[in-house]
């Protein structure tokens, strides 16, 4: 029995994939807190790109205080989500273990008064302590993670929906701005006096359009990463009674890989 338990120890850590998914989600959400282009950047750009008529540069100054507030709120929201996945990662990680090794360490071979502890007995206690550490920790974590996932899934799902909506809204507003820029530049090119003027307009358009396209791509990737995180959490909830299943492990590994790959594109 003991040999069986010791033999299954490496396989007795079914939360490794949960841990990997949680850690990758945390890392991805952590990166999202520091997006270089947010509501404030959009506000500054939109004050001149979306404005059709102006007489002086001062007419293009806008009030971006709300946008700065939105960025700050969003940062807090991403930080909150990252903190949740950090805690889930910690709870499912190898570091959070009941460690019985001090007890095993206290039982050294030797003669104590009238008792003799042989090295075989000492090794057996050590092995039992290692087994207890793995099995009790896994059982405890399973119970706690199960409670966490089932109790808070709906609220987490809603929170991810909200940040996903913000990302999608901002991406689409930038896309609208890009369409406007193209539309306006086209009209100006049509009215241009000569090729030199047309080329200057095209050059300015291409530069800004490329910059905006990069922002749009980055937000598309962010939306996709959030979708994968949401999907992963849903899978954990769906399989909460069998977090060690081979199918779930495979799916969680795949999702964790996707999240990191996509979030590298998002930043």
């Amino acid at each position: 029995m003991l040999a069986f338990c010791i033999g299954c120890l490496p396989g007795c850590v079914p939360l490794k994939e949960v841990n990997l998914f949680a850690e990758d989600s945390r890392e991805s959400l952590g990166k999202m807190t520091s997006a270089p282009y947010g509501y404030a950047s959009y506000c500054y750009d939109s004050t001149y790109i979306n404005k059709t008529r102006f007489n002086a540069l001062a007419d293009l100054d806008g009030d971006c205080r709300d946008a700065l507030l939105f960025d700050s709120l969003l940062r807090t929201e991403y930080e909150t989500l990252a903190a949740y996945f950090a805690a889930l990662g910690q709870l499912s990680g190898a570091k959070t273990r009941f460690d019985f090794s001090p007890v095993a360490g206290a039982i050294q071979p030797g003669t104590y008064g009238g008792f003799t502890i042989t090295s075989v007995e000492s090794k057996a206690v050590n092995a039992l302590a290692a087994t207890a550490t793995a099995l009790l920790t896994t059982g405890y974590k399973h119970k706690k993670i199960k409670g966490l996932l089932t109790r808070f899934h709906d609220t987490l799902d809603l929170a991810i929906t909200f940040v996903g909506l913000h990302a999608n809204n901002l991406k689409n507003k930038v896309l609208n701005m890009q369409i406007r820029l193209k539309e306006r530049t086209d009209l100006m090119v049509g009215d241009a006096q000569d090729d030199r003027e047309k080329w200057a307009l095209a050059y300015i358009y291409k530069q800004k359009s490329k910059e905006l396209a990069e922002v749009i791509d980055s937000y598309d990737a962010r939306c996709l990463a959030l979708q994968k995180i949401r999907q992963g959490h849903q899978k954990l909830v769906d399989n909460v009674e069998d977090l060690g299943s081979a199918t779930l492990k495979k799916e969680m590994l795949g999702l964790a890989r996707d999240i990191i790959y996509i979030s590298n594109k998002a930043n």
């Binding site: 807090t76 909150t80 809603l158 909200f162």
Partner: peptide
């Protein structure tokens, strides 16, 4: 929603 997420992190 975000108060709920904070509570979840606290629970973990």
């Amino acid at each position: 929603a975000f108060n709920g997420v904070t509570a979840a992190a606290q629970s973990a």
